[in-house]
């Protein structure tokens, strides 16, 4: 039932190395990457070419997206209770904390075994991306359509029965 942890972590570690290499020394405008290609989850949708530099300017504070991991502190709210003085972490990429597969048997087992874990309701990587981006974009009037950030691939068209794979006949009521 439980997959060997080492196999599960291979893609996550790969991601951490990939993004960590480009973003581990992130400090606004100085060492942070100007461009990040978010392709870890790309299959039905193409990779996102993320203009990090532009978002650094918009967000102003690294903690807006990176919580406490860049050493900016996490404010005075709930996170600040523990993380107000937290130092910069070794990895700041989203995928270093947010799991690709948060509901795998191994992930659930690990969560159940760790009785002292506080962050039991942490979103997976896909949700972390979408919450972070959509949350701001809805408030600031940024793009919110699926295709605005990542165009659908042919595999995605087939999956959604759209585009070239759309139903041929005129839409008939299902009932």
């Amino acid at each position: 039932m439980i997959k060997p942890m080492s196999f599960l972590y291979v893609p996550v570690i790969a991601l951490v190395v990939l993004l960590g290499a480009t973003a581990s020394t992130a400090a606004p405008s100085a060492d942070s990457p100007d461009q990040v290609t978010i392709d870890r989850l790309a299959s039905l949708f193409a990779a996102v070419s993320f203009d990090h530099a532009a978002h650094v300017e918009i967000a102003g504070d690294c903690a807006t997206c990176h919580h406490h991991t860049t050493g900016d502190g996490a404010g005075t709210g709930r996170c600040g209770r523990c993380h107000a003085q937290s130092p910069k972490t070794a990895e700041v990429a989203c995928g270093s904390c947010h799991q690709v597969d948060p509901f795998s048997a191994a992930a659930l087992e690990r969560k159940a075994d760790d009785r002292y874990q506080y962050h039991v309701d942490k979103p997976g990587l896909k949700a972390a991306y979408h919450w972070n981006c959509l949350g701001c974009h809805e408030q600031s009037g940024g793009p919110t359509g699926c295709g605005d950030c990542h165009p659908r691939t042919p595999a995605g068209d087939a999956f959604y029965r759209a585009g070239a794979y759309a139903p041929k006949t005129a839409a008939a009521p299902a009932h």
Binding site: M1, F103, A112, D121, P123, A127, H130, W131
Partner: peptide
């Protein structure tokens, strides 16, 4: 086989959280 249903896995917003029912009740109230 210990895997979440397809709808849970695809959800981009994690509007669907999969887990033991008794744990989900705790998470929901939290």
């Amino acid at each position: 086989n210990g895997r979440p249903p397809a709808c849970v896995e695809i959800c981009p917003q994690q509007a669907l959280t999969f887990g033991k029912r008794r744990e989900l009740i705790k998470i929901a109230h939290q």
